[in-house]
Design a protein around this nucleic acid. Structure first.
Lengths: 205, 205
DNA sequence: AACGTAAGTTACCGGTCAGTAACGTGATAA
DNA sequence: TTATCACGTTACTGACCGGTAACTTACGTT
């Protein structure tokens, strides 16, 4: 199974060059490690070490690992909605174009070499259902995505807007999920835009 | 984060009533626990205890936890293809009906209350990429599914068979993935059959 | 110079992880 | 009867888990 182990830091004391506060370094490192290797696979020791500090400084900045995980998930969530708004903003007033632009951007993102799927969705695999704080966080996130897709489908005048929104969500999460196994743009994600357009057409023609 | 802890066994010594061999009990217990709580979240101690035995008997039957995990994944894989063949067998010679039947059966499975998504796909989230044995196992599995879907789409006479097969795979994995967050039949999976038929129509009309 | 603050260091806690050694027991089969 | 097999039991290893205590070092203000 093998948990992630950090290798010695290259830059033990960069001294003068004002590097970011330890809390920020820890957080950024943790985000990267969690996404790359999974939440359970990364211990706080490895995070602190990789961030060029130690466990004590970790616990001066974060109450617990679960707190850090929650903050990681909230951060990814925020980034997601920023991305979402940026993707649809140029096509305000044209819902169909907005959906297409959204999925074009999503496709580009998913095809990037360092993409490891959906951070929140992956977390749902790892966290236990009885961890209320974290699983609620993920559920709210996915529910809001679903809701926004319903809204956009409705704005587009789709025959069965909720069904179209749900189908689009299946495609979105499907491309995240398959991405874990198929590298780059070689996977089933190739067919994403075709499927998106076919479904939209089917609901508007 | 909280790892799974087993509660005391109810049936410490069922004596006469010939219960299955310890290896089988361990394996069955492990499959259930891995699927329910995730692979990393379940330790060998918990497995052995839940199976009504102890760690020593575990290691008499399995060389390592990773070996057991591999066997778990192979078993789920076998079950999957059995299910697959059973689903399409009644409609041999009618590829379109086969695909529909496949997804109808898949939908029913995914709507079951104890479904926690795709065992192999979930494993892909948890295992590290450098675990060759396990990640190859998962990749081969997903590649074969993709290949079979391509074949069926081709047999159906689809205009772009590979694209249709890929789109169907996105829907399939999407319904697995969303299932982790949306309980029962309340999630985006509601739209599955509609999307499947719309895509097929789009590729054959 | 004095002080507060941010951060590094070492050592430790109890618990769990995967995995092993050595031994005991009860049933079966030769 | 004796040997073997399948299994249970106890105790252990070394590493790692999340988390804490107590102390030290360095810097920035005033």
């Amino acid at each position: 199974m093998s948990t992630y182990k950090s290798e010695a830091r290259d830059d033990p004391h960069a001294a003068t060059t004002a590097r970011p506060r330890v809390r920020d370094r820890i957080f950024e490192t943790a985000c990267e490690l969690f996404y790359r290797h999974g939440i359970r696979a990364v211990g706080v020791d490895a995070i602190a070490c990789e961030a060029g500090t130690n466990k004590m400084s970790f616990y001066r900045s974060f109450a617990s690992k679960d707190e850090l995980v929650a903050e990681y998930l909230r951060d990814r969530q925020r980034e997601f909605w920023t991305w979402w708004n940026d993707a649809i903003a140029p096509h305000a007033g044209n819902p169909r174009r907005q959906i297409e632009a959204l999925f074009e951007s999503h496709l580009a993102h998913v095809e990037e070499s360092d993409c490891r799927g959906c951070a929140l969705g992956n977390a749902a695999v790892e966290i236990s259902d009885d961890n209320d704080a974290l699983s609620t966080l993920v559920r709210d996130y996915k529910q809001r995505i679903r809701h926004e897709l319903h809204k956009m489908a409705r704005a587009m005048g789709a025959r069965d807007a909720d069904a179209l929104g749900d189908s689009l969500m299946l495609l979105m999460d499907g491309s995240y999920f398959t991405r874990l196994v198929f590298p780059g743009d070689s996977g089933p994600v190739r067919s994403l835009m075709g499927a998106v357009r076919a479904l939209i057409d089917g609901h508007t023609r």
